[in-house]
């Protein structure tokens, strides 16, 4: 296991800037998740680290060694793709053993047996080892695909949305499993996804990408509670952070330059009637079983908040909306901090 360092890495495809001046470090044993929508540069970043793309500028260092110009095979990385690519004619065991039998990394069979058994146990597929890959369910196939990466002990594992093709339940299960395995193996992982839940729940650090640029990097808690701009603020949190015009709260003390107030659903206080906050009207109550989401309109702005199931608030009620722990943003979306 080792450290990865990206030093001013840029890559364009024709006129499109895929990634621009990326600088970050993945420390030994860290689980870094790059989060961003389609086109943010997530996959390109992984491919640059793997050596599947060559940067236009900057350097990629693995364990202090400059690998920028090295071919993929010379770099000590393994890649897990979104779509499981298994050998259909091989058994699960042989699929898992495959990387250990390749000429470049040949290992003795006894070692291979031990390693495959260990990984199969971690992934809960011990009883499937003699099955053909094609006899597995989608979730099992993806476990085998992840397992095939894990049998090797590279410097770093590169994972490109490995859970996105699975259904929600299996995804939730594998999130916990993957994190446990990462901890047990002490593995270094660079993982990309557009799914904020995966980022929040698995990462030691999240890097938020916006159009090829790394906007913020930090622990899930730091990114959630202390976003640098509205882009980052809206990427994390479900329901999304409420952004309301500053004019709705003229009496709220805010730093100069504030045009938008951001407030998380858990920091909106709702009471029936009018009580000194902004007056809103309940438009819709979303019953999600464990919680209710209250959709309230204040002037033309919709605010979403959590409410207790027995709050007695109904659609069309007039409610008082108060904000606690507000975040302040300028017109360009950047955070404005109180001095």
């Amino acid at each position: 296991m080792a450290e990865l360092f990206l030093d001013g890495v840029s890559k364009r495809f024709g006129a499109t800037v895929a990634v621009a001046d990326l600088n970050f470090t993945v420390g030994d044993g860290e689980f870094i998740v790059l989060l961003g929508p389609t086109g943010a540069g997530k996959t390109t970043t992984l491919r640059l680290v793997a050596g599947l793309e060559r940067p236009d500028a900057g350097r990629v260092l693995l364990d202090g060694r400059d690998v920028t110009l090295e071919p993929p095979a010379a770099r000590d990385t393994t890649f897990v793709f979104q779509q499981y690519s298994l050998y259909p004619h091989l058994s699960v065991y042989d699929n898992l053993a495959f990387p250990l039998r390749s000429p470049a990394h040949r290992e003795p069979e006894a070692r291979i047996r031990a390693r495959v058994a260990e990984i199969a146990r971690l992934l809960h597929i011990e009883d499937k080892l003699s099955n053909r890959a094609t006899q597995l369910s989608g979730g099992q196939m993806q476990r085998v695909a992840i397992g095939r990466a894990l049998v090797r002990r590279p410097s770093i594992y590169l994972m490109d949305e490995p859970l996105s093709s699975l259904d929600a339940k299996l995804r939730a299960e594998l999130r916990v499993e993957l994190k446990r395995i990462q901890r047990e193996l002490g593995a270094t992982i660079l993982y990309v996804t557009h799914d904020q839940t995966e980022a929040m729940t698995m990462a030691t650090q999240i890097g938020v990408l916006d159009r090829g640029r790394l906007v913020q990097i930090g622990s899930p808690r730091a990114i959630y509670t202390d976003p640098v701009n509205t882009y980052v603020a809206t990427r994390l949190g479900n329901p999304a952070i409420n952004l309301v015009p500053r004019e709705l709260y003229p009496t709220l003390a805010a730093p100069t330059g504030t045009t938008t107030i951001g407030v998380r659903t858990e920091h909106v206080r709702i009471r029936k009637g009018v009580n000194g906050g902004a007056a809103g009207r309940v438009k819709w109550i979303e019953h999600l079983g464990d919680q209710n989401h209250l959709h309230v309109t204040i002037a033309d702005t919709e605010v979403v908040t959590l409410c207790d199931r027995d709050s007695g608030i109904a659609v069309d009620d007039t409610v008082d909306v108060q904000l606690t722990a507000p975040l302040f943003f300028a017109a360009n979306g950047d955070r404005v901090r109180a001095h």
Partner: peptide
């Protein structure tokens, strides 16, 4: 405790 998943508003503890 097997795992704690931080979700911002809440966390899911397995």
């Amino acid at each position: 405790v097997v795992d704690a998943e931080y979700l911002g508003t809440t966390q899911i503890v397995t």
